[in-house]
Simulated scan of single mutants.
Amino acid sequence: MFVPRAGTYPGVGYLFADRAEAGELLAERLLFARDPVVLALPRGGVAVGEPVARRLGGALEVLVTRKIGYPPAPELGVGAIAEGGEPVFDLELLRKLGMTPESVAWVVEQERAELARRVAVYRGERALPDLTGREVIVVDDGLATGGTARAALRVVAGLEPGRVTLAVPVGARETVRALRAEADEVVALATPVDFRAVGQWYERFGQLSDADVLRLLGR
């Protein structure tokens, strides 16, 4: 069980110094995995996935996802898309906002373009590894609404893996519970009650660049 350290957020502490420490701790909960493929969601998930793959002796690769934002407030995700997959929408949220998947089609096309750009930067012409029958661990740096993780898991499920684990250092309790229907197992080191944002639980949670991702991938 984690005990929050004194942090910079009023009234709360933090659980992890940075994503690298979170990955090291997460790896200790994943020692059951044998020869896994670790698929990290860029950008932040790659910094967590790298120590996981290194500790488990698994292959590290990226699975690129993009949030589909609500146009007036793009930080509010109404869906997500992962490479090779179709958009996954929060239909209940769209209904409450008076919108439909068709009304954000132009946002989806923008995100498809950025998704394709990142795939080209991170993997070039290489396809995702063959996941048939493999143990797959999908890693991100945290779960808030879980939209991008859900989109990623559905793409992975279509590639006929042997077993799929979603692994995160921290996540909103309800989101973690909901995503158990999308994977064989969900491993979350912490599910705090007072969950407001993923970055709340890290002492250092700076944005990563494409160059940071390539460095972590050893490219």
Rank of each mutant, 00 (worst) to 15 (best):
R173I: 08
A59C: 00
K96A: 15
E75L: 02
T8I: 14
A188V: 02
G162R: 12
L216H: 05
G77Y: 12
E185K: 14
R134A: 01
D141R: 12
A47V: 05
L97F: 10
F32C: 02
F195S: 06
P4R: 05
R29N: 06
V52A: 09
V46I: 14
V12F: 13
E75Q: 05
L56M: 09
Y9R: 15
G85V: 05
E109C: 08
L153M: 08
T8M: 11
L214D: 06
R34F: 07
L179H: 07
R29L: 09
V136H: 04
D35K: 15
E160A: 15
V64H: 02
P4Q: 02
V193D: 15
D184M: 12
L179R: 00
T191W: 06
G77F: 12
T145Q: 04
T100H: 02
V119W: 03
A33T: 08
V176K: 11
R177P: 05
V78N: 03
I68L: 14
P101A: 14
L131Q: 04
A190S: 10
V213G: 04
G23N: 01
D212F: 04
G13A: 07
F205T: 04
E114L: 13
K67V: 06
L214T: 09
T148H: 14
G84E: 04
V62E: 02
L214F: 13
P4C: 01
A20N: 13
L39P: 04
K67M: 02
V48Q: 04
L159D: 12
E174D: 15
A105S: 15
L179E: 05
A183P: 09
V186W: 14
P169D: 11
E50T: 03
E114P: 10
A190F: 02
E160F: 11
P10F: 08
V64K: 11
V138D: 11
F89E: 10
L31A: 15
Y70F: 07
A40P: 03
S209T: 15
A178W: 07
D90S: 12
G23R: 08
A82L: 01
L76K: 05
R95C: 01
L208C: 01
A172D: 03
F195P: 06
V52C: 10
L76R: 02
R219F: 02
V139E: 11
F16C: 03
A53M: 02
V38M: 07
S209P: 03
P42T: 09
G206V: 13
A178P: 08
R163A: 13
S209M: 06
G162M: 06
V37C: 03
L41F: 04
L31I: 13
A172I: 01
F32A: 14
A127Q: 06
E92F: 08
T191P: 12
I68Q: 02
A27S: 00
L97H: 03
E28G: 13
R204A: 13
